[in-house]
Computed example of a mutant assay.
Amino acid sequence: MEVRTRAPGKIIFSGEHAVVHGSTAIAASIDLYTRVALQISSDSENGEGLLKLQLKDMGLEFLWSIRRIREMLPDLSAPLPSQPMACSSESMESIAVLVEEQSIPEAKVGLASGILAFLWLYTSIQGLKPATIVVTSDLPFGAGLGSSASLCVALSGALLALSDVTNLDLSSQGWLTFGESELDLVNMWAFEAEKIIHGKPSGLDNTVSTFGNMIMFKSGKLTCIKSGMPLRMLITNTKVGRNTKALVAGVSERTSRHPDAMNAVFSAVDYISKELSTIIQSPVHDDLSVTKKEEKIEELMEMNQGLLQCMGVSHASIETVLRTTLKYKLSSKLTGAGGGGCVLTFLPALLSGTVVDKVIVELESCGFQCLIAGIGVKGLEICFGGSS
């Protein structure tokens, strides 16, 4: 039996940085996915019993004999897929040895934590069965679009789909979704895997990827919201790496130097996120009402970007994207940590494709990567066999 899953990436629509200081933020899923194909095989099918992981986009394959995994994890008990638990430090050390034995190319050394998370998820949910797992992704690695969370969600979903704790019709054609309690289970496993990769993740990225649509969050409380209108963004990856921890610390330092001014900034961001949430959820009746709502969304995005500049998290590469899109009367804002990373540009429903093409040509001539994405799509989806 083969199972395939896909889990979306995410953007922060509004409220990044300010959310750390108590403001409301909105995150949304995007129709750029990480896809996982999982086939569990018998020993005879898979030589001497191998666990294979193929990272298709990178042309990398990793192989472990089941015998070697058993040697390194002798205390591995029967899997309990229904009970997500943290990876113990002993297991972490043993799995790290299995990853080190793979001699990952130096240029790809950042993948090690993701492979560690994969091995932990696999052995925790499926135990010591030989299998082949193929991973592909539309999402740029490390650009703040939730690539690691979507990997953890897609893996957790595939592994759980072939366990006895989920209930899906295996004969169904096309993409299926889990029920609410099963999605909760996927989300908990994905969060534990994210901890292996990031240490102390917020849990937001995996929640958006699992459940899809949009999530409003404030002081740790997450609320799912649904868009009443189709939304499209041009996402520009500046390819400039950034240190999220340092950027967050920089905002806190600025706040301690100018508490009143910065608290006013955070308060304004809170209002922007709440207003965006109201606009996005309200129904639309005709093209005119869509256009009016789009104009308000554009203004709020511009205001949010201005406030992010006040926080000191913009960057020369981000300003280049803002100037370029402004020439075409399009509204943009950074998404995520800032200091590089990605920029969102709102694409109104009636915008001509020719204009979009011109903007992309100009941005790509600066060395940036451009992706067009629908916003607020479904979360984790599953299909069996050859259907899709």
Rank of each mutant, 00 (worst) to 15 (best):
K10D: 13
A18L: 08
V19P: 14
T24Q: 06
I26Q: 02
A28Y: 04
T34P: 00
Q39W: 02
S41F: 02
D57Y: 08
L60M: 03
F62I: 11
L63Q: 10
L63Y: 05
R70M: 15
S77V: 06
P81H: 07
E90N: 10
A96T: 12
L98H: 05
L98S: 07
P105H: 09
L116Q: 14
F118V: 07
F118I: 07
S124T: 09
V153Y: 02
L168T: 01
T177E: 11
F178S: 04
G179A: 09
G179D: 05
N206Q: 14
V208A: 07
T210Q: 13
I215R: 03
I225E: 00
P230H: 10
L234G: 00
N237T: 07
V251Y: 02
V265C: 13
S267V: 01
L276S: 03
S282R: 06
S282K: 09
K296L: 05
I297G: 03
L308C: 14
L308H: 05
M311K: 04
H315P: 04
S317P: 00
T320L: 03
V321R: 00
L344V: 02
P348F: 07
L350N: 15
V355A: 10
V355I: 15
V361H: 04
S365L: 14
S365C: 13
C370Q: 13
L371P: 01
A373H: 03
G374I: 09
K378V: 08
G379F: 01
F384K: 07
